[in-house]
Design a protein around this nucleic acid. Structure first.
Length: 545
DNA sequence: GGTCAAATAT
DNA sequence: CATATTTGAC
């Protein structure tokens, strides 16, 4: 993204106020680092032994957004202990040594970067990127309280800039920078936090949820045959598409989607769009001079849903948001899935119980339509039937079709049987749960809503009756969210089944069925580290000489 | 609060 | 005209 005037004002003091926990036993280097950071407007809390640091993060984790931890021969595993404990926010490891094993271990344990000492201004100046990166790439896990404000701030500013850009355009200014953002969004697949350019903010994509976003991007890119550009109004021509593209990406990052109404009519008075701004500043500066005891993040969390004219903005139930919704519903279990609880679980700022209630209503209605009366077993009215053991309740699938969604927590997926939940299992309670067809394809009627799209996962309920009761004619065309769209577009359902089965056979070591996405390297690493990274040298002393 | 249904917005 | 979301009543 080209640095425009609005950039300068919006991001001017971006890292300002970010709280950095510094753990370094070497007091002189600690002091030096601290002063460098402070010169850059970071707020530094310095610790010289890991126990203090540990207790600091465990008691007030929300007070920090970033940690810099020194690892040395003398502090042994202390730094690693900290690193593991501080998984919720980005931790940069630093050391005098250049031992590859050490670096490797740091990375395996979740460090976001390894910096060789001494820490120069250059090395330090962009560490904020890790904060932003983390804030946007914590899907499926719990996003740390301290990172939420950052995320919101960034989203706000970016959205604001979109608005500004829109206005500038109307004034005849070339929107070159937006094109730039778009381009980078589509092609820059690999996050490289060390690269300072702001354009990275346009695409916070990790392997984990890469597919999703790319899908939507590519679809939008490809023009009008797009299933997701629901909010694209053709009125404005291409610029609107770009606008929407970017906004949508932000939206799909888990924020409540707010439809900014761009009033083409009353060109000048869009001051209301400024509303995200104050929040942004607040969030970043709130910690200034504050004491460690405060938790800045708790302060302001509500998304500004008020338009200039005071009207509330509509909640846009993006696939992403709906996915949260579904997760919540599944997690709660059918008889507990009530608006208030769903709202809690969704953890989507700005979303009200009413919003959810409404969505739930629609959701239920749709289901009723899809699963005709005879087996409406899953809704509370039929208490007698609730206990019946329907196949869709059984955790047969380790990777239920619907869950091929990468945004879901990786944790329980491979442990369906031992899932901690009180419910039977984190399994879709609505067997073969259909994707939510947001504007599937042009011309397709929206009552395709509940159409089961996935071929019934082979091992799963072969007898599930309603799988076929509703119109299936479009099955080939409707594509589930979170699935690689092309996959379906080019493979008839039977081929898919075949493919999945073959894969299952060829990889017997994996749980069945495999789902549609093989475990990524990332997943394996994560799993390894979760289990204590036995493959990595237990200590570093052997390489420090 | 939860649900349902009418009212609105898109 | 059909849908999606919000509003309001029960």
């Amino acid at each position: 993204m080209v640095c425009t005037a609005s950039d300068l004002s919006a991001w001017k003091d971006f890292p300002k106020g970010l709280r950095v926990l510094l753990l370094d036993e070497d007091s002189s280097s600690a002091t030096e680092t601290k002063s460098k950071l402070e010169a850059m407007d970071y707020i530094v809390f310095s610790f010289c032994n890991e126990n203090e640091a540990l207790s600091a993060i465990s008691s007030k984790e929300e007070s920090f957004q970033l940690a810099i931890v020194e690892v040395s021969t003398s502090n042994g595993n202390g730094s690693f202990k900290f690193l593991e404990a501080a998984k919720d926010f980005p931790t940069i490891m630093t050391s005098n040594t250049q031992c590859l094993s050490t670096m490797m271990k740091c990375m395996a344990l979740g460090a976001v970067e390894f910096l060789q000492k001494p820490l120069s201004d250059d090395k330090l100046k962009n560490i904020w990127q890790h904060v932003v990166h983390k804030a946007f790439n914590t899907k499926g896990r719990i996003i740390s309280e301290s990172l939420k404000p950052v995320k919101q701030s960034v989203v706000s500013v970016l959205q604001l800039q979109l608005d500004n850009g829109e206005r500038a355009e109307k004034a005849g200014v070339s929107p070159a920078n937006k094109n730039e953002l778009e381009r980078s969004a589509g092609s820059d697949k690999y996050p490289a936090p060390s690269t300072p350019q702001l354009k990275q903010v346009g695409r916070f994509l990790d392997d984990e949820d890469f597919q999703d976003h790319t899908n939507s991007l590519m679809k939008t890119d490809s023009g009008e045959h797009d299933g997701e550009t629901k909010s694209v109004e053709t009125t404005g021509g291409n610029t609107m598409v770009e606008e929407t593209l970017i906004v949508r990406e932000l939206q799909s990052l888990g924020e409540i989607a707010i439809k900014e109404e761009i009033d083409l009519a009353d060109g000048g008075n869009n001051e209301g769009n400024l509303c995200p701004h104050p929040q942004n500043k607040d969030n970043l500066d709130i910690s200034r001079g504050g004491t460690e005891g405060e938790s800045p993040s708790k302060a302001t969390h509500s998304v500004c849903r008020i338009k200039a004219n005071g009207k509330k903005m509509k909640v846009d139930w993006t696939p992403e948001l709906h996915r949260k919704f579904l997760q919540a519903v599944e997690q709660l279990g059918i008889d507990q899935a009530i608006p208030s609880r769903i709202v809690e679980l969704m953890k989507a700022e700005g979303l009200t119980r009413h919003n959810v209630a409404s969505h739930l209503q629609k959701f239920r209605k749709q289901r009723r339509h899809i699963l005709p009366k005879d087996d409406d077993r899953r809704w509370p009215h039929q208490k007698e039937q609730m206990q019946r053991n329907y196949c869709s309740y059984k955790p047969i699938m380790a990777f239920p079709a619907y869950h091929s969604n990468p945004a879901l927590p990786a944790g329980p997926v491979y442990h369906v049987w031992g899932a901690p939940n009180t419910r039977p299992a984190p399994v879709p309670m609505w067997g073969g749960y259909p994707p939510w067809p947001w504007k599937p394809y042009p011309g397709m009627h929206a009552d395709a809503w509940g159409c089961p799209v996935m071929p019934p996962p082979h091992t799963a309920c072969p007898s599930l009756p309603q799988q076929n009761t509703s119109g299936f004619s479009n099955a080939g065309a409707v594509v589930g969210y979170g699935m690689p769209e092309n996959y379906f577009e080019h493979h008839p359902a039977e081929e898919i089944v075949d493919k999945v089965v073959k894969e299952a056979i060829s990889k017997p070591w994996l749980p069945l069925p495999l789902g549609l996405k093989p475990p990524s390297a990332e997943f394996v690493l994560a799993e390894l580290s979760r289990q204590g990274i036995s493959t990595i040298p237990p200590n570093i002393s052997d390489c420090n000489s």
